[in-house]
Design a binder for these strands. Structure first.
Length: 327
DNA sequence: GCAATTTGACCTCG
DNA sequence: CGAGGTCAAATTGC
């Protein structure tokens, strides 16, 4: 928690991030060579966004990298102890529970009444089992578990919290793995739509994936937490969006097990902007469910330049301009 | 009547 | 001891 150390880490993480982004850009460039026209164009778009992300990271102060742009710190303006602490805590609260978690952060467009029920609908059936007022947050946090927890021993959990500052933003945290029947159905649906969902495993580590769909540009952040004991890490990828072609970038059989999709509540069937792209580094480890699901996913695979598990990179969500609204 | 939600109490952790 | 997470009885809705 010392500042000097943190800055060192951030500096290192910045270069790690640049490394990842560069590889992502390069990978996209290579990929685009093998695609046909419409897909190629979209791939080029993604490549450009990698470039832009690299530029932004380059121009970023190390100390500034800690800030989260959109959401994440409801009512914590100035308190200086935003989400990272909260999420870490929330996930460690109970011992012996889920080891890998998925965290999804969603921004929904301003459409109709927004309440807990407006929280992102990921296509799974959830049953609310609690609601709690959170310190420094105007809106309470809702706790959900899979409807089939009892019947099918499905351990998936979900937390939904609305941001104070921007009521259109929901912080959704997924935890645990769907093993219920709907998961299979969801997976095929996911594939056909180009969604993804995460399949966390119940291992010794604790990992989170945070996605951020920002209006009007769906974008995502990926955040992993490894909390075996005292270790923790955070990687937040640059966010980017794929404007109108959901098929461009769907890694086959993407499956992000905890479950999410971009179908937001009643906003219902949107046909675009289902997002399934990952930067290169993540592509190998995240997008392929089989890898991710297994034990071979390690933070160090993603961050090869990181020698320790105690790191933290955070980076703003870049509002890539997309003409396509997310609903 | 059953299932889902609400809500206050209780538990766990830092 | 306080904050967050979960439980379970009561309530509500279909």
């Amino acid at each position: 928690m010392e500042n000097g150390t943190m800055n060192d880490n951030k500096s290192m993480n910045k270069s790690c991030l640049l490394h990842i982004l560069s590889e992502g850009e390069e990978e996209m460039r290579r990929l685009s060579l093998n695609l046909n026209e419409p897909q190629k164009a979209a791939a080029m778009q993604v490549q450009k966004k990698f470039s832009r992300a690299i530029d932004i990271v380059n121009s970023m102060e190390v100390t500034g990298m800690q800030q989260m742009p959109v959401s994440g710190s409801p009512g914590q303006s100035g308190s200086g102890s935003p989400r990272s602490e909260g999420s870490e805590r929330s996930l460690k609260k109970r011992k012996g529970t889920v080891k890998r978690t998925i965290k999804v952060q969603c921004t929904v467009p301003n459409s109709g009444p927004l309440d807990a029920a407006s929280a992102p609908d990921d296509g799974y059936s959830w049953r609310k089992y609690g609601q709690k007022k959170i310190l420094n947050a105007t809106h309470p946090r809702s706790y959900y578990r899979c409807t089939f927890q009892k019947t099918q021993n499905c351990q998936a959990l979900k937390q939904v919290q609305r941001s104070d500052e921007d009521p259109t933003i929901f912080d959704v945290t997924y935890q645990g793995e769907h093993v219920c029947a709907q998961h299979a159905a969801q997976t095929s649906l996911t594939q056909s739509l180009g969604h993804q969902h995460i399949i966390p495993t119940q291992n010794e580590s604790d990992k989170q994936f945070m996605l951020d769909f920002t209006n009007p540009n769906p974008s995502f952040l990926i955040e992993t937490h490894e909390s075996g004991h005292d270790e923790q890490g955070t990687i937040i990828s640059p966010s980017f969006s794929i404007s109108s072609n959901p098929n461009v970038f769907s890694p086959s059989s993407t499956s992000f097990g905890g479950a999410f999709s971009s179908g937001f509540g009643s906003s219902g069937a949107s046909d675009s902007n289902y997002f399934s792209a990952f930067p290169n580094e993540f592509g190998g480890d995240f997008a392929g469910v089989s890898n991710f699901h297994g034990s071979d996913f390690e933070l160090n695979d993603v961050m090869p330049c990181s020698g320790t598990n105690d790191f933290s990179i955070e980076q703003p969500t870049y509002p890539f301009n997309s003409p396509h609204a997310f609903k």
